[in-house]
């Protein structure tokens, strides 16, 4: 019990291999439930409120959508490359994805700025539930995205250290699943806010 043996290490690695992706998937389920809590809240609030404000989404949000789709495609290309043992391509793809990820955040900031300058505020007496929800949902999406960015940083550092190859790319896979999920989540939220809220 006191000392960790080589055998222990092997089992640990094996367990990780078997469970890393399922853990993430179920984590994703809970994040989905978290956001569906809020999107259903929007529907309930809207239903019970005669003067619900329909808010025009800022252009920057559409831009963000394009950015995040591009980033996902790029990252996926990185995964395909490493499966073929093309380490160089992975480095490139991951770092570009990271840059796009950061750009997404910047674009979201512009979106909020635009909303704000249109007099749509999150809190206080001139806010409405519609406006509060827009900020809340988009901000919490970015918070979840930050975790994705951290994982991208880890993956890119490791890929620069050449830790991945065609037989060992679990880290990339895990990171990519989460990143794709963030993209899909954003698209869902974007469409929801645009057409339903």
């Amino acid at each position: 019990m006191a000392s960790i043996t080589l055998q222990d290490l092997n089992t640990k690695a094996e367990i990780r291999k078997k469970t890393a992706k399922p853990l993430l998937w179920i984590g994703i389920v809970s994040i989905v439930m978290f956001f569906s809590g809020w999107t259903s809240a929007v529907i309930v609030s809207k239903g019970g409120n005669g003067n619900w404000l329909n808010i025009e989404l800022p252009f920057a949000f559409s831009l963000s959508t394009i950015i995040i789709v591009l980033s996902s495609l790029l990252f996926h290309y990185g995964l395909i490359s490493i499966k073929k043992d093309n380490k160089k391509m992975l480095k490139l793809a991951v770092s570009l994805t990271l840059v796009l990820g950061l750009l997404f955040v910047v674009s979201q900031f512009y979106g909020w700025k635009e909303l704000y300058s249109n007099g749509i505020v999150a809190t206080g007496s001139s806010s409405t539930n519609a406006s509060s929800f827009i900020y809340l949902i988009t901000v919490f999406h970015v918070l979840h995205l930050l975790a994705g960015i951290i994982s991208l940083i880890v993956v890119s550092v490791k890929s620069y250290k050449e830790k991945y190859n065609s037989t060992n790319f679990l880290g990339v896979e895990v990171s990519i699943i989460y990143w794709h999920f963030l993209g899909a989540l954003w698209i869902y939220l974007f469409l929801f806010l645009k057409y339903i809220a």
Partner: peptide, 20 residues
Amino acid sequence: PVLLSAALLLIFDRGFGTSF
């Protein structure tokens, strides 16, 4: 997670001036 989302809205109502 849904309780968490409910609690967050309550936190915002209590401290940040929203009216969910």
